[in-house]
């Protein structure tokens, strides 16, 4: 239970960030950790299909982009309430996952990786050329929306806790999901799809449902990211973002409930603090990642689990 203990400790720390930030008079802590939590949610969504379903999506940034643009486009058109923006973001991302899922899930292995990347790149260029909504430059969100008519989101602390609540919800959801009937089918597909089909599972249906669920949750993360940064641009769905999400999941521990939380925080904190030392921080990140993959089987979650077992 080492990983679970570590996760709850991290969540407790995250809950305390606003107080610490106020105490140390470092308001930008809210930005850093708020963003890290959003990426953790996106990584959780990717982990559902990558870690538990064995589907290596190299296009998950597309869903972040869709969620972000849904918020941005509604916002500039005067639809301000997040209770309208969020369902739109989640619905649009889920719909994109459904439509592309019919195609990408017919493939496997390297083809799956490349075709998810291809769809994400199509969206990237679509938004780049969408002059009406900022094109290359992206779209500034004029003001943060309201929550059920209340202007609470203007407070950075309120927004922070909102993201925290979504993160906690996403963790709880994925913890339940992977132990459910649906989760067992998904994990069975990763382990041995041929056997699943021989047992009578129409695996395509279940994989499609997982893909849509994952895309929808990632779209939610995109909506929160746009809200936090009051901006959305093509850069959020650049292919390197999809790669970063994979790195987070692998670093944290694929197919573990809390791995994406560890991975997202570790990746972004490394980037932040190493980035202060040198702008070539990826040179350090690369070896760190290789060490984790080689020596910490199951990523950081696996490492914590082993530490927890020591007397």
């Amino acid at each position: 239970m080492g990983a679970r203990f570590a996760a709850f400790a991290i969540l407790a720390l995250l809950a305390a960030v606003p107080a610490i930030a106020a105490l140390l008079d470092q308001p930008f802590y809210l930005d850093i950790f708020g963003r890290a939590m959003v990426y953790a949610i996106a990584a959780i969504s990717l982990n559902l299909i990558l870690g538990y379903g064995g589907l290596i999506s190299f296009g998950h940034a597309a869903f972040i982009g869709i969620g972000g643009y849904a918020v941005g486009i509604l916002s500039v058109n005067g639809i301000d309430d997040v209770l309208l923006q969020w369902p739109a973001a989640i619905g649009a991302a889920g719909m994109f996952a459904l439509l592309t899922g019919f195609v990408v899930l017919r493939t496997g292995g390297a083809h799956f990786i490349m075709i998810t990347l291809a769809f994400a790149q199509m969206l990237f260029f679509l938004f780049t050329s969408l002059e009406l909504y900022g094109g290359d430059d992206g779209l500034s969100i004029p003001h943060r929306g309201t929550l059920a008519g209340f202007k609470v989101l203007d407070s950075p602390v309120a927004l922070y806790y909102l993201v925290f609540a979504v993160l906690a919800g996403a963790l709880a959801l994925s913890a339940r999901l992977v132990e459910s009937r649906f989760g067992m089918v998904l994990r069975g597909c990763k382990s041995n799809e041929r056997r699943m089909r021989a047992l009578g599972f129409s695996t395509f249906r279940y994989k499609l449902a997982a893909y849509v669920l994952s895309g929808a949750l990632c779209g939610f993360a995109g909506a929160l990211l746009a809200l936090e940064s009051e901006f959305v641009g093509p850069s959020v769905l650049h292919w390197s973002r999809s790669g970063e999400l994979i790195v987070m999941v692998v670093m944290g521990g694929m197919g573990t409930v809390f791995g994406p939380l560890f991975g997202a925080l570790a990746y972004l904190m490394l980037g932040h603090f190493l980035g202060d030392l040198t702008k070539h921080w990826h040179v350090i990140l690369g070896p760190v990642l290789i060490l984790i993959v080689l020596y910490a089987r199951g990523g950081l979650a696996g490492l914590f689990a082993r530490l927890g077992k020591r007397p």
């Binding site: 339940r176 999901l177 132990e179 459910s180 009937r181 649906f182 989760g183 067992m184 089918v185 047992l199 009578g200 599972f201 279940y206 449902a209």
Partner: peptide, 13 residues
Amino acid sequence: ARAGHSFRFFAEA
């Protein structure tokens, strides 16, 4: 596989 559908997302299998 033979005990109804598996679109059950929350109850622990």
